[in-house]
Amino acid sequence: MITPLEIQNKEFKKGIRGYKEDEVDEFLDQVMIDYEKLYKENIELKEKIETAHHQMAKYKDIEETLKNTLIVAQNAAEDLRANSHKKSELIIEEAEMKGKEIIARAHREVEEIRNEFEDTKKQMQSFKTRFKTLLQSQLDSFVKEYDELSEDNEDSQTA
């Protein structure tokens, strides 16, 4: 691309029937001024475009980072949900096991109480039988004593 300085330093050869040098110089000065403005404007626009590209690249990096962060957050949320679900299942499982254990212990205690009741019932039956036997033997002994006393008393009254 031609620069404004090259336009300013350009010299034309003179010919026999050439243009008026002052008009050509004046026109070239005007072209050089306009071209210099356009050249500077072009450089500024290129710099702005470059800056915009850099900003766009930064925004794309930020966007990518946000996407990755969002993905990580979603994965973390899914992991947390899965872990919470597993933990709740373990808690439920543990509670069910403890419940079964408590029920089994209660059944054992009921069985022990039943056995104790049966033993006590047997002991009571045995005690009743022995006591009945003791009472019967005491009654028999009193009846025998009474009969003997009555016989002795009848014998002493007949005599």
Rank of each mutant, 00 (worst) to 15 (best):
M1G: 12
T3F: 04
E6T: 03
N9F: 07
K10N: 06
F12V: 12
K13I: 10
G15P: 03
G15T: 09
I16V: 12
I16D: 10
R17Q: 11
R17G: 11
K20R: 14
K20N: 15
E21A: 07
D22G: 07
V24Y: 00
E26C: 05
F27V: 07
L28W: 00
L28K: 15
L28D: 01
Q30M: 09
Q30L: 14
I33G: 05
I33T: 10
I33A: 14
Y35V: 01
L38Y: 13
L38I: 11
L38H: 14
Y39L: 02
K40P: 00
K40C: 06
I43P: 02
I43V: 10
E47R: 03
K48Y: 06
E50N: 07
T51K: 14
A52D: 05
A52I: 06
A52N: 12
H53S: 13
H53V: 08
Q55I: 11
Q55A: 08
Y59G: 01
Y59V: 08
D61I: 10
E63L: 12
E63H: 00
E64Y: 02
E64K: 07
N68C: 04
I71C: 07
V72E: 15
A77F: 02
E78D: 13
E78I: 08
L80Q: 09
L80C: 08
A82S: 08
N83R: 09
N83G: 08
S84D: 10
K86S: 04
K86E: 09
K86P: 00
K87N: 08
K87S: 11
S88V: 04
E89R: 05
L90E: 12
E94A: 11
A95R: 06
E96I: 06
K98G: 04
G99K: 10
E101T: 04
I102H: 08
I102G: 05
I102D: 14
I103R: 04
A104L: 09
A106Y: 02
A106G: 01
A106E: 13
H107D: 08
H107Q: 15
E109V: 02
E111N: 05
E111H: 00
E112D: 07
N115F: 04
E116A: 06
E116G: 01
E116L: 03
F117M: 07
F117T: 00
E118W: 03
T120V: 02
K121G: 02
K121Q: 10
K128H: 09
R130H: 04
F131Q: 10
K132W: 09
T133F: 10
L134C: 06
Q136D: 13
S137Y: 02
Q138R: 12
Q138S: 11
L139I: 11
D140E: 10
D140N: 10
V143N: 14
V143D: 15
K144R: 05
K144T: 14
E145N: 06
D147C: 06
E151M: 12
E151C: 05
N153E: 14
E154I: 09
D155V: 07
T158P: 02
